[in-house]
């Protein structure tokens, strides 16, 4: 994009700056739009699975439902409880949403469309997503109210528990790809399966890793069946209980932006990212971003599907799954996969 601005007669620095700002807006604004649409999709999918209609009043097929909701919360009064720690109470939704957006800076949407093509892209995403604990803990603590505090503690313990196994699973992918650069990880998947399939996920050693990664993503984003932080019967609305207006909505937007990020990571790390599913020349005429978004959408559909069909875990079961099942298995797989790669001469 820098070239385009340079062709308008700008110097390199200005062109670069404008291109970067444009790139940021091109990521952030469509992201917010797609979050709004994806909430609608989520509700429609649950409705369809439950044999209901879902939102169908606002706009054609209820398409504008999320925007109506957004306008409603926007015009609401912002309530700051008198017992709350004001500064942190206001800061918490800002942190949540900033962190949810910031992770998108390194996501490659196609071979060239990436804002920051850094060497440690995957580590950056891991680091930023580990920050999302703070939005939760800050909101729960600052509310100075019983239910938000319990919920925040639960959420924090849950998120860090599953982050452990996510770290080990990512190491398995990196062992195959040999790099942390997301674009290079995608490129390494070209013709990976039997020389025709562009995906890590079909490898018999990586498929179980993907299944674990997907489940950990559900836990990390506090989706059903791991949505204990929002267990209405126990904790009212979770750590956002005291929030209102747009501050409340920011938690939702952040949550869905994180869910989309996890879906896109599933696609990038295990299912070929912006590559077509099969390494066959005509398929490359379809732009990479289309493939990526199709895959992401599919994983989002799986998130909704799980939400509509699975009952909630109990907290001790959730901890057991994280620490006693996923952690030992992913540790074992790191050893097995690295041993397999060494033995087969993957590293030359």
């Amino acid at each position: 994009m820098t070239e385009f601005f340079q062709s308008l007669g700008l110097t390199y620095e200005w062109a670069w700056g404008l291109a970067t700002i444009a790139g940021i807006l091109l990521i952030a604004l469509p992201l917010m739009l797609s979050v709004a649409m994806v909430i609608y999709v989520d509700r429609k999918v649950w409705a369809a699975i439950n044999l209901r209609r879902g939102p169908n009043v606002v706009g054609p097929f209820g398409l504008l439902q999320s925007f109506a909701d957004g306008l409603k919360v926007f015009l609401q009064e912002t309530i700051i409880p008198s017992a709350a720690n004001k500064g942190i109470f206001i800061l918490a939704p800002i942190v949540t949403f900033t962190v949810a957006l910031a992770a998108w800076a390194v996501v490659p949407f196609s071979a060239t469309a990436v804002l920051a093509d850094i060497n440690i892209g995957l580590l950056y995403i891991l680091a930023i997503s580990s920050l999302s604990v703070y939005g939760v803990v800050m909101s729960g603590w600052a509310s100075n109210s019983k239910y938000p505090f319990f919920s925040a503690m639960r959420a924090a313990a849950q998120m860090i528990s599953y982050e452990v196994s996510i770290g080990f699973i990512l190491v398995c992918v990196v062992l195959f790809a040999g790099t942390f650069n997301l674009n290079d990880i995608v490129r390494a998947q070209e013709g990976f399966g039997l020389g025709v399939i562009n995906a890590y996920g079909i490898h018999p050693l990586l498929f179980p890793m993907w299944v674990m990664f997907f489940i950990s993503c559900l836990a990390e984003t506090q989706r059903v069946p791991f949505d204990l932080t929002e267990a209405e019967s126990e904790l009212v609305a979770g750590y956002q209980t005291e929030y209102s207006s747009m501050s409340f909505a920011l938690f939702w937007l952040g949550e869905y932006a994180n869910i989309l990020l996890m879906c896109i990571l599933n696609a990038l790390l295990f299912w070929g990212g912006w590559l077509p599913p099969i390494d066959w020349a005509p398929l490359y005429y379809v732009p990479g971003i289309v493939w990526l978004l199709l895959k992401t959408f599919f994983f989002f559909f799986m998130f909704s599907w799980v939400m509509a069909t699975v009952p909630r875990y109990r907290y001790d079961q959730l901890m057991r799954l994280g620490w006693k099942v996923f952690l030992p298995i992913s540790l074992g797989f790191v050893v097995v996969i690295s041993g397999y790669l060494m033995a087969t001469g993957h590293f030359g």
Partner: peptide, 16 residues
């Protein structure tokens, strides 16, 4: 490659 991330952080924080 890192400067866009810094700018992105500022934009995201301002937006939030």
């Amino acid at each position: 490659q890192y400067l866009p991330i810094l700018i992105f952080l500022f934009v995201a924080a301002a937006l939030s």
